[in-house]
Design a protein around this nucleic acid. Structure first.
Lengths: 238, 238
DNA sequence: CGGGACCGTCAGGGTTGCGTCAAAGACCGG
DNA sequence: CCGGTCTTTGACGCAACCCTGACGGTCCCG
C-alpha cells in the first residue's frame, strides 16, 4: 500500500512531525513522503503549534523530548482547539509518562526505538479513525441547473421533489457523476453497473440512459447533461 | 479518577473483554469494574461476536490468541458492521502482526505483559476519541408530524402516549433514525441489527419494517416516513 | 445516392423483490 | 410446568423492475 488513503487519488494526508533529533525527522520525512503523505516538520514546541494552526494537519507525530517546552504542554495546546490525532513518540518507557500523555489527549504512544512499519500502521489507524468525523460533514453533492444529486444519501432532487430511481438507474448515474466532465467508455459503464462479464451489451446503456434523461433532463430528446459521444461512451456535464 | 467518563454520573461505559486466559480476564474485569465500567467477557471469537452484536459495547479489548478463530478475523467481523474502538492485546512482539491487526481495523495494540495503568489510559483514549460519535446520540430528538423519537431515553411518543417497541423493532428504528434522510442498504441494516453474519435474510427486514409502520405510520400501507427503495434499502424521512 | 453503423424509443414478458398474513419455535417470568 | 411475548420461518399475491426484440432516425462513408 503506497498511498495512505488506500488507493483513490485525492487530497493527500498532511502529517506534522515534531522532533528535535534531525535523524529521526529525516527518517520519518523520507518514509512518509515515499508513501504520498504531505509532511511538515518542526523541531520545537512553539513552531509546532504555529505550524499546526497554519497548516491544519490531518495527523501529528510528536516527540515528547523537546528543547523549549514539555511535550504534554504541546498536546494540551493542540487539544485546546483541535481534535487532530496525536501520535506520541518517546524514549521513556515508564507507565506514568504514557498515562499522562494519553490522558492529556494523545491518541497513541510509541516508545523509541520503534519499527517504522509499526509506526506507519499506527499512523494509518489514527487517520482512518478520524476520517468518518471529517467525511460526515462533507456533503457529497453534485448540482446542475435542473437537479441535484446527493451521493451520500442516494437521493436525487429536481424542482424540490425527490426523483425515484431504480437501482440500475441510480448505479449508472453514480458512475457517471463520479467522473463528472470526463468521458466514460461504454465498456467501463457496462462493467461497473452490470458486472465484469458485460462489455458489449450496449443496448442496455441505450435503454437506461434514455430513462435517466426522461427523469432528469428538461428536454430528454436534446440532453444537456447526459451527453453521448458516438462510438465512444457517455459524459456527464453539470 | 474513578469514573471512566470523568465524573458526571451517566450511562456507564460498556467494555467487552475477549480473552481465553481466565487470570487475565479476571484482572481486567476487577480493574474495570472498580472504575465503574460495565464489563462483558467472552473467551472465544464466536461468542465475542455474538456478545458485541447483542450488547453494543463502547470499546472492545481483544486478545489475539483465541482458541476458535484468528484474532484478526474477529476484528474484521466487528468492522463489518461497527466502528467500536478495538484495543488489541497480544504476546507477540513482531511488527508484522501489529501491522496486520492495525490495518484490519484495530485502534491500538498492547503487548503482554502490559501495565494495567497504561492499558487503562489507552482505553480511556480510545473511548474519548469515539465520543463525538456517541455525543451525537445524546440529546437527539427526532420529530415527525405524527411521532417523536428520543434516542437517549429510548422512547417513542405518538399522540401523547408512549409506543411499546420490542428490542428488535427499537434497534431497527434506531439505525434508520441515526442516518435520517439517507438511504440505508438492507445489508447494512441487517448487519447492524442482527449481527455481522446476517447479510441476506431480507425477509426479517420486511417483517419488522411492517411492524414499525403499523405502530408508527398513520397509514401503514402508504408509509410517509419509512420509505423503501426497491432493491436498495430503506430510508427514514421526518 | 445508397447502405451500414450507431443511437434513441417503445412495448411486452419473464423474473425478482416487497408486503402481508399466519403459524411454529425460542425465550422469559411466574 | 405453563402462558405470554418476541423472533423466526414459510407461503402467496402483486407490483415493479430488468431484459429483449423490433422499428425508425441520423450520421458517416463508400
Amino acid at each position: 500500500m503506497l498511498s495512505p488513503t488506500g488507493g483513490t487519488p485525492q487530497t493527500p494526508t498532511r502529517v506534522l512531525v515534531i522532533d528535535d533529533e534531525p535523524q529521526i525527522v529525516r527518517a520519518l520525512v523520507i518514509n512518509l513522503k515515499a508513501r504520498r503523505y504531505e509532511v511538515d516538520a518542526a523541531h520545537d514546541g512553539a513552531t509546532a503549534l504555529e505550524l499546526a494552526a497554519a497548516r491544519h494537519p490531518d495527523v501529528v507525530v510528536l516527540d515528547l523530548g523537546l528543547p523549549d517546552m514539555d511535550g504534554v504542554e504541546v498536546i494540551r495546546g493542540l487539544r485546546g482547539w483541535s481534535r487532530v490525532p496525536i501520535l506520541v513518540l518517546s524514549a521513556r518507557h515508564t507507565s506514568d509518562e504514557k498515562v499522562e500523555a494519553l490522558d492529556a489527549g494523545a491518541d497513541d504512544y510509541v516508545t523509541k526505538p520503534f519499527g517504522m512499519d509499526e509506526l506507519l500502521a499506527r499512523l494509518r489507524a489514527a487517520v482512518r479513525r478520524a476520517e468518518p468525523t471529517g467525511a460526515g460533514e462533507d456533503d457529497v453533492m453534485v448540482e446542475t441547473e435542473e437537479f441535484t444529486v446527493d451521493l451520500a444519501a442516494k437521493k436525487v432532487n429536481r424542482g424540490g421533489k425527490d426523483v425515484r430511481l431504480t437501482p440500475t438507474e441510480w448505479h449508472l448515474l453514480e458512475v457517471l457523476v463520479r467522473s463528472t466532465g470526463r468521458l466514460v467508455s461504454q465498456k467501463q459503464l457496462l462493467q461497473e453497473v452490470w458486472g465484469p462479464s458485460y462489455g458489449t451489451e450496449t443496448n442496455y446503456l441505450r435503454v437506461y440512459m434514455a430513462q435517466l434523461r426522461r427523469k432528469l433532463e428538461a428536454d430528454p430528446s436534446h440532453p444537456r447533461h447526459f451527453i453521448t459521444e458516438p462510438g465512444m461512451g457517455y459524459r456527464f456535464e453539470p
